[in-house]
C-alpha cells in the first residue's frame, strides 16, 4: 500500500508523504488501517515486542533529505491505540543541487488513552546540507507520548551542515512545550558556551502525560555532567543532553527511557 510521491517542484527535489493511523483492534491489540508512504519515508509494519502495541519501522531513510526536498509524515494513535514508530537507520541530511533547505515536517496525534512512541534513529547533519525540521504533536488529555530527538552535527570529524528544528507539543489543547534549535555554520553563537560548547550531538527525550506514579517524584535533577531531567510546567518530563558524539548521546537517553513503564 503505497502513495506515490507527489509531483516534485523541480527535477532535483522530492516531495514525499507518509501516513500512519493506529486504532484499537477490539482484541486488546492495535490495528493499522492506514499505512502509506514511499521513497525516503517508507513505513513498514514490523514485529512488536509489546502485544498491545503495533510497531512501524521507517525504512529507506538513508539517502534523504537532500536540500530542496520536502518530506511530511503524519502519525495518529487514536483513542486507546498503542503505536511505536522507529527507524531502520540514521537519517542523513545531505546537500542537494539547490540552495533551498530541505523540509521535514512531522505531525503526531495521540487520542485519549492512546500511547505513541516516536523513536526514530539519529538525524545526522552532513557538511553543506540545509534542513528545517518541525515536529508538531497534539496529545489529548489522558494520552501518552514519548518523543526521542537526536541530532548529530556532522559525520565523524566533519563540519556539520545547517540544521534548524522546532518541537511543538500541545496537551489537552494547550501549549505544553515549544523549542527551537538552530545549529551549524551560519547559526550565530551555536558552538559557544551557551549553546553547544564544542559538543557534536544534542538530543531530547520527552515524556508527555506523566503522572507521579509513572515517573516517580517529578524533580529536576542532573543526569551526569551534560544532561538534565526537567519536569515541564505541564504533565511532562524532558531529558536534555549534549554529548561529544552520537553513541554517548544515545547512552544517556537510553537511561532515561527507563523512567516510565510505558
Amino acid at each position: 500500500m503505497t502513495e506515490a510521491a507527489a509531483a516534485p517542484r523541480s527535477a532535483a527535489s522530492v516531495s514525499a508523504r507518509a501516513r500512519i493511523t493506529a486504532v484499537p483492534d477490539g482484541r486488546g491489540g492495535t490495528a493499522l488501517p492506514l499505512l502509506s508512504g514511499a521513497g525516503p519515508v517508507a513505513p513498514r509494519r514490523t514485529r512488536s515486542a509489546d502485544p498491545a502495541a503495533a510497531r512501524v519501522t521507517l525504512v529507506g531513510a538513508m539517502s534523504a533529505p537532500l536540500s530542496g526536498d520536502r518530506l511530511a509524515l503524519e502519525v495518529r494513535a487514536e483513542a486507546g491505540a498503542a503505536l511505536r514508530v522507529d527507524g531502520s537507520a540514521a537519517t542523513l541530511a545531505l546537500p542537494g543541487r539547490t540552495a533551498e533547505p530541505a523540509r521535514y515536517d512531522v505531525r503526531l496525534e495521540v487520542g485519549e488513552g492512546g500511547r505513541l512512541h516516536w523513536l526514530p534513529e539519529q538525524l545526522v547533519s552532513v557538511r553543506g546540507s540545509r534542513l528545517r525540521q518541525h515536529l508538531r504533536a497534539e496529545v489529548a488529555r489522558g494520552g501518552r507520548l514519548v518523543v526521542r530527538d537526536e541530532q548529530v552535527l556532522g559525520r565523524a570529524g566533519e563540519e556539520p551542515g545547517r540544521l534548524s528544528s522546532r518541537l511543538t507539543v500541545r496537551y489537552g489543547g494547550r501549549p505544553l512545550f515549544d523549542q527551537q534549535l538552530d545549529l551549524g555554520p551560519g547559526a550565530p553563537g551555536w558552538d559557544g558556551g551557551a549553546v553547544l560548547g564544542g559538543h557534536r550531538a544534542v538530543g531530547q527525550l520527552l515524556l508527555v502525560g506523566t503522572e507521579e506514579r509513572d515517573a516517580g517524584p517529578l524533580l529536576a535533577r542532573p543526569l551526569g555532567e551534560s544532561a538534565v531531567v526537567t519536569p515541564l510546567a505541564g504533565p511532562a518530563l524532558l531529558v536534555t543532553a549534549v554529548a561529544p558524539d552520537a553513541l554517548r548521546l544515545r547512552h544517556v537517553l537510553d537511561t532515561a527511557l527507563t523512567f516510565t513503564s510505558w
Partner: peptide
C-alpha cells in the same frame, strides 16, 4: 520564536 540553548538549560 522558541529559540533555545541546550547548555543554558542543562
Amino acid at each position: 520564536p522558541a529559540a533555545s540553548a541546550p547548555l543554558l538549560e542543562i
